[in-house]
Amino acid sequence: MSTYQELIAQRAALEKQTADLEKQIADTLKAERSNVINQIKTLMADHGITAADLGGKVGRPPKAAVAGAQPRKVAAKFRDPSTGETWSGRGLKPKWLTAALESGRKIEEFTL
């Protein structure tokens, strides 16, 4: 039977082997990806194809476009019949809905 120290040593050896294998896998994938990209570039050059010919968006959008994007509005799901106030169902419940629910009303009564 193995001792605790022997098991700890085996575990450390296995963890090192796992780390080495993961690094080898990452390196292999990186090399394969590089080769595939080079093949694609060569084929595109041979046939006179540009990235625009492939259609769709190429690469990531500029940061300014992402940063300047307006937050999307969410449609209201609940309405207070007496005041007309609405709630989308996201975030904290509004006070009017909390009070109504505490008074015994059901949330289905406020559904749009």
Rank of each mutant, 00 (worst) to 15 (best):
K41Q: 12
R60N: 12
A64P: 06
T50H: 01
L29V: 14
T3V: 06
A45Q: 14
L21C: 05
L29E: 15
V58M: 13
A45T: 14
F110R: 03
T111K: 07
I107W: 03
N38M: 11
K73G: 05
E85N: 07
K23H: 07
T86A: 04
L101G: 00
A100Y: 00
Q39T: 12
T18Q: 15
G91N: 05
I25F: 08
T50V: 10
L29Y: 14
I107N: 02
P71I: 07
G48A: 06
M44E: 10
L54G: 01
T86L: 03
A19T: 13
P71F: 01
V74Q: 14
D80T: 03
A31I: 10
V58K: 11
A65T: 12
A52T: 09
A31P: 00
R11Y: 12
E85Y: 06
A52E: 15
F110V: 01
S2I: 10
P81T: 05
G104F: 00
Q10P: 01
E85M: 05
R11V: 11
E109N: 02
T83P: 01
K93I: 00
D46M: 12
S103C: 00
K77Y: 00
W96Y: 04
Q17C: 04
N35V: 07
K95V: 08
A26Y: 01
K93W: 02
E108S: 04
A45H: 12
E6L: 03
A69K: 14
A67T: 14
E32H: 09
D20E: 15
D46H: 05
I49K: 07
L92F: 08
R90M: 05
S34Q: 11
T28S: 10
L97D: 01
Q17R: 15
G91F: 07
S2M: 13
G84S: 05
V74W: 02
H47A: 10
A26Q: 09
L54F: 01
E6I: 02
K77H: 07
K106W: 00
A13Q: 15
M44P: 01
A65N: 02
T86F: 04
I8C: 05
L7H: 09
G91V: 08
A100V: 03
S103M: 03
G84W: 04
V58D: 11
G68P: 03
E102C: 06
D53C: 06
V66H: 07
A76P: 00
G56Q: 06
G89P: 02
G68R: 14
A65W: 05
V66E: 09
L54T: 09
G59A: 06
Q10G: 12
I107F: 02
T98W: 02
G48R: 06
R33A: 04
I37P: 02
E15Y: 07
E32W: 07
A100H: 03
I25Y: 07
M44D: 01
F110H: 04
A64R: 13
F110Y: 11
K63Y: 08
S2A: 13
E15C: 06
T18C: 11
Q24G: 09
M1V: 08
E15G: 10
T86E: 11
V36T: 13
D20N: 10
G68K: 13
Q10R: 15
A99S: 11
A52L: 08
L54W: 07
Q17S: 13
